[in-house]
Design a protein around this nucleic acid. Structure first.
Lengths: 237, 237
DNA sequence: CATCGTTGTATCCATGCCGATACAACGCCG
DNA sequence: CGGCGTTGTATCGGCATGGATACAACGATG
C-alpha cells in the first residue's frame, strides 16, 4: 500500500481530524483558545464554534474560564486527552513508517464459515477474515473474487526446520519460500519472500530476528501469519 | 479502540472517501455518470466536476463516451478498480468487525534504538515501534510517556509449555497470564487475558485455535505478539 | 434527417464554513 | 474603579460546495 491517508474519528456526524487535534494541542500548550487560534492562523470565533461542535459530539473537551488571573484561559479535559490519544493511535495504525505496508493477493473464496473463509490464491490457499463491503452489506460469499491483504508487520519468518506445523489444527497461514530481497533499517528489516504468487510476500521483522535467521537473498524460509490478521475484501471481476 | 472512523486516500490535496467510492461503484453498475448521479441523489454536473477533481489527483478513473449506441456512457478504468481496491483495504483495516480492537498500555520509553524501543508498562516491558507524532517530528525519545497499542488480531495465544522461549534473541513480546473472558463468534473468538496490567490484553483468535488450547476463563496461557506489530505513540503527562 | 440519451460546459441560487471584527461579560490586580 | 486579557456572542463578507437547470455537442438508430 502506498500513497497518503487522512483519517477521522467520527461521532454524531462530526469528524475529528488533524486540524482539530492541532487546535486541542495548541490550547494545551498556550493555555487559551485565543492564543491557540492566533498561533494556528485561525479566527477565535471559528475556533470556539468548532470546539462547541466537537463537544456536542465527543463530550466535554475544553474547560474555559473568563476573567481572573491572566484574564482567563482554557485547558484540556481528560476526555480531550483520551480523544487525542485515540487519534494518535489511528494515525499510527495508518502511517507509512509504522508498518502499514501490505501484501495483496487476489483469489476466489473457496469456503466461508462465519467470519472466516479460505481463499484460493496464486500463492496457495489463505485463511482470512471475510470483510463485508459495507457495515450493513451481506458477507462475502463463496465464489466471490477477493483481494487478501496481509500486513507486513503480521508476518513471522521461521527457519524451515523451526516452522509451525503445516495443516492440522494450526490456524496460521504458512508459506514456504525464498528470500528475494532485504531492506535494512537501523532496527527493523523489510524482507520480501518469493512464495510462488504474482509478487513477493513482505514481512517486517526486527534486525535481531533477521540476524537470528541469517536472512539474505536466496535463503529458504517459512512465512506465517494469523488468519485473524488477514483480511479478504471483495473486488470486481 | 471504539467509536467510528472515516478514512480517506489522499493525493495532491484531494481526499478520496466513501462518497467517491459510491460514485465510482454506481458508474460501474449503471454504465453512465448521469444514471449514477441520479441513483445517488446527486447532480450530474457536480458528479462530473468531482470526477475531474479526482482524476487530476489520482489519474484517469472513468472513460466517458458521448453519443453512439445507448446515447453514450461511462466505464471505470483499471486505475479506478485499483483505487477502489485500495480504499476497501483501508476500510477493512479500520473496520470494527475485522479485528481492529486494541489493547492500550501506558508506559515510559526505557530504551530507543532506531525505529524500535522498549517501553516499561504496568504489565511488563514491551518492545514496540516508536511512531513520531508528525511525519516531520523528531522520534519518540527515551523517557517519553507513551501509549502502546497492540491489535487483538496480532496477539497469538500458546499453552504455557508450548510458548516461544522467553528472552534471548526472540523478538516476540511475551506475557504469561490467565484467561479472564471469552466471547465466541461463529468462527472467531475474542479472548481477554489478565497479564497483570491495568486491564486485560485482548486476543482475536480462530475458534479452532481456541478449542485446541481449551480456552476458558481461568486457563493459564502465554500471549505473544511481534515487536513490529506493536506501536508506541507519545501522550501527554 | 430527427430522435434519443449520453457527455460537456456554464449559470444560478442556497447552504455552510471561514476569517475579521465588534460589543459584552468576567474576575483578578494595581 | 480602571485596565487587562480572556471567553461569549453576533455580524459581515468571501469562498467553496452542492443541487437544479439550460444549452451545446456527440454518434448510433430508425
Amino acid at each position: 500500500m502506498d500513497g497518503e491517508f487522512e483519517a477521522y474519528l467520527s461521532a454524531d456526524g462530526v469528524d475529528f481530524g488533524a486540524a482539530d487535534a492541532s487546535l486541542l494541542r495548541a490550547i494545551a500548550e498556550r493555555g487559551s483558545v485565543n492564543a491557540a487560534a492566533a498561533a494556528l492562523g485561525r479566527s477565535r470565533a471559528r475556533a470556539l464554534a468548532r470546539l462547541d461542535a466537537l463537544e456536542a459530539a465527543f463530550g466535554p473537551l475544553v474547560e474555559r474560564r473568563r476573567g481572573g488571573s491572566g484574564g482567563g484561559g482554557s485547558s484540556l479535559t481528560g476526555d480531550a486527552e483520551a480523544l487525542l490519544a485515540r487519534f494518535e493511535r489511528l494515525r499510527a495504525a495508518l502511517s507509512g513508517t509504522a508498518g502499514a505496508e501490505e501484501t495483496v493477493l487476489y483469489g476466489t473464496v473457496a469456503t466461508a464459515t462465519g467470519e472466516l473463509g479460505y481463499v484460493d490464491t496464486a500463492a496457495g490457499t489463505v485463511r482470512a477474515l471475510l470483510v463485508a463491503p459495507e457495515p450493513e452489506s451481506p458477507p462475502v460469499a463463496r465464489g466471490s473474487r477477493v483481494q487478501v491483504s496481509v500486513r507486513a508487520d503480521a508476518v513471522t519468518l521461521h527457519a524451515p526446520d523451526d516452522a509451525p506445523p503445516a495443516g492440522g489444527t494450526s490456524a496460521r497461514n504458512r508459506f514456504p519460500g525464498t528470500v528475494a530481497g532485504v531492506d535494512r533499517g537501523e532496527a527493523i528489516v523489510r524482507v520480501a519472500v518469493d512464495v510462488g504468487g504474482d509478487g513477493p510476500l513482505v514481512a517486517l521483522v526486527t534486525a535481531d530476528s533477521a540476524d537470528g535467521l541469517a536472512i539474505e537473498p536466496g535463503r529458504s524460509v517459512v512465512a506465517s501469519f494469523k488468519a485473524t490478521a488477514t483480511r479478504a475484501t471483495a473486488v470486481e471481476e
